[in-house]
């Protein structure tokens, strides 16, 4: 048994394509030792809808952030070199283009949830020199921490400030007793961000923040007209961050 067999078969398959030997190739190719779990939640364009009317006080945001940061071993570093996967900030920082000196009081200083937008046209993926960050077939903008060389080009490329760099060993700021033993930490020198809980989707579970949000976050497939995200976007007014720069975020905010 050889694990490079799959690669060999890929090449072999390509080379016999011209001989119209497809049936035989199909039979071989199904022999690959790697399988997608039957529990995997599938989509072609994962998206998140944030119901901002349900997220107001710090008490509304905290459980979401805690849910994410605790299971993903995200440290809290009390400096400018902090790591954030999901957090919140005031309206003028989240939607800086929406300049309005006479904004209604209720919205003027309202806080909004922030996370990676999993853009349909992600600039971070375009600039990465090693494909360490890439777009999956289901639309998730993924990080391969094994491959990242830490050049931080993606951080310059991201127009949303969604990416964090491990300036130091994150374990210095993690409590070993509280680490989630089923998920890795990161090493110093790599970039990280929200991964839409790809590991939970593979297990048939929704992202941790969605689960903790009591309905404030809706997660689903934008390409499926019957999905809950499509339904709610059809009914209510929604906006996205910095729509003018063409990145097509897959995180929507219901106002």
């Amino acid at each position: 048994m050889d694990t490079s067999r799959r690669k060999f078969l890929t090449y072999a398959g390509v080379s016999v394509l011209g001989l119209a030997a497809m049936p035989a190739v199909d039979a071989w190719a199904s022999d690959t030792p790697y399988v997608v779990s039957s529990k995997q939640l599938k989509a072609t364009r994962w998206a998140m809808v944030v119901d901002t009317t349900k997220l107001n006080s710090e008490a509304d945001f905290a459980p979401l952030i805690e849910a994410c940061h605790s299971i993903h071993n995200v440290p809290d570093i009390p400096t400018k070199q902090n790591i954030k996967w999901i957090w919140y900030d005031e309206r003028e920082r989240v939607f800086p283009d929406d300049e309005n000196p006479y904004m209604a009081e209720a919205f003027e200083h309202k806080n909004y949830l922030l996370l990676c937008n999993h853009c349909f046209e992600p600039p971070c993926v375009r600039v990465c020199p090693t494909k360490a960050t890439f777009k999956r077939e289901d639309g998730i903008v993924m990080m391969d921490f094994h491959r990242c060389i830490g050049c931080r080009y993606c951080m310059a490329g991201c127009p949303y400030g969604a990416r964090s760099f491990n300036f130091m060993d994150p374990r210095l700021h993690l409590d070993a007793a509280k680490e989630n033993k089923e998920f890795p930490t990161r090493t110093k020198g790599v970039v990280e961000k929200c991964n839409f809980c790809y590991e939970r989707l593979a297990d048939g579970k929704l992202p941790a923040c969605v689960e903790a949000s009591k309905g404030a976050l809706i997660f689903g497939d934008l390409d499926d007209p019957k999905s809950e995200v499509r339904k709610v976007l059809k009914e209510r007014y929604s906006i996205r961050r910095k729509p003018s720069i063409g990145t097509q975020p897959n995180v929507y905010y219901l106002i």
């Binding site: 490079s4 779990s37 033993k181």
Partner: peptide, 28 residues
């Protein structure tokens, strides 16, 4: 190979060539 299949291709189960059982791809 496990790393690439799981992280990059989303194929998180491995079928053993020895005993044909399925295993979750995960070091931890």
């Amino acid at each position: 190979d496990w790393r690439d299949e799981a992280v990059r291709n989303g194929e998180r189960l491995y079928v053993s060539q020895a005993n044909h059982k399925q295993y979750q791809i995960s070091l931890q």
